[in-house]
């Protein structure tokens, strides 16, 4: 194990895959000498050179679209969209090209490509640089959606995403990028579709991902002091979703709170709630609760931004309401 930040761990994951497979390359805006807006790619340009760490023009459509063509022609691109908010610019390439090419061609194409993109509020970046848009992508069959919450998962899921033979959207939370943690050294792969129980508990299940995992864990600490044992389940990938781990946890606790930073209506918490209501209604001892951001653009003022974000207090309150 080695202490690394989330950004360093993610970079370690990319670097090791680039060393292992010459067809893996990195492309995006300012990923080269600049090293990415949050330092995610620092040093890779110096190590691998401009052929494999490619600074692109400000052309999100061509960044994702070129990755589709390059992947169809045998490469394994890892492209960056600087903020998830910019995915709107290249949505056709995600929605109609990357996601559907294999199916439309009757299974005769594979697109091993990763789109890395930072999400999340908490840094005063306001409405166009702070969103959590994962639900837009979970609604598109043909792509996978990955959202690591720890440095170790950031590394392992990056390797898993790059080795996957499908388009994967790897969503990194910008507040987590600087967080340190223990990370396995050398090759480390987290398979897509495998949830992780971040804290074992017996009275209530809190499902949280990405930036909400630390808050769910903090809430579980508070609840423990009040005699409630909360289990924190981090799905880590939303598509494919590890339903077994989710259902097993609910079977054990009988109570479910789902937490995400994304806005509420149409959010992925609704999907998880629906799955549990459909397939595990008898397991529940209480209604399913969702703690999310309100249906509102992300505001700029730190006071307003704090009011927008789900907090550990809100999670604690929601869990307590179930008893």
């Amino acid at each position: 194990m080695k202490k690394m930040t989330y950004a360093e761990a993610e970079r370690d994951g990319i670097r090791l895959e680039m060393l292992r497979d010459p067809n893996v390359y990195l492309a995006g805006e300012d990923v080269g000498i600049f090293g990415g807006c949050f330092g995610q790619t620092t040093g890779l340009f110096q190590e691998f050179g401009p052929q494999r760490v490619v600074d692109t023009p400000i052309s999100e459509t061509a960044i994702v679209g070129h990755a589709v063509g390059a992947a169809a022609a045998g490469l394994r691109p890892v492209v960056e969209i600087m903020f998830i908010d910019f995915m709107g610019v290249c949505m056709d390439e995600v929605l109609n090209q990357a996601a559907k090419m294999r199916y439309m061609f009757g299974g005769k194409a594979a697109l091993p490509m990763v789109i890395r993109t930072p999400c999340g509020a908490g840094v005063g970046a306001a409405a166009q640089h702070s969103q959590s848009l994962e639900a837009l992508f979970t609604h598109i069959p043909g792509i996978k959606v990955v959202m690591p919450s720890t440095p170790a998962d950031a590394k392992g899921l990056m390797a898993g995403a790059i080795r996957d033979n499908n388009p994967v959207i790897y969503i990194e939370h910008k507040v987590l990028l600087g967080v340190q943690g223990d990370v396995p050294e050398g090759e480390y792969i987290v398979p897509l579709g495998k949830a992780d129980i971040k804290r074992v508990g017996s009275d209530a299940t809190i499902v949280a991902w990405s930036g909400m995992v630390p808050k769910a864990l903090a809430a579980a600490d508070i609840l423990a002091k009040e005699g409630i044992s909360a289990e924190v389940v981090d799905p880590r990938t939303l598509n494919p979703l590890d339903k077994d781990t989710l259902m097993n946890s609910v079977a054990k606790t009988g109570r479910l709170v789902i937490v995400h930073e994304a806005t509420k209506t149409g959010g992925f918490a609704g999907e998880i709630a629906a799955i549990v209501a459909d397939e595990g209604f008898d397991l529940l001892n209480a209604p399913i609760k969702r703690i999310t951001a309100p249906d509102c653009p992300v505001p700029f003022s730190p006071i307003l931004e704090k009011a927008f974000l789900p907090s550990e207090e809100k999670i604690v309150r929601a869990v307590k309401e179930l008893f």
């Binding site: 459509t61 061509a62 070129h66 589709v68 390059a70 992947a71 022609a73 490469l75 056709d92 090209q97």
Partner: peptide
């Protein structure tokens, strides 16, 4: 939509 895909395939040919 073919234009960026062709660009990417050409990127692969060069790479």
């Amino acid at each position: 939509a073919g234009q960026p895909i062709a660009t990417g395939a050409a990127f692969a040919c060069k790479y």
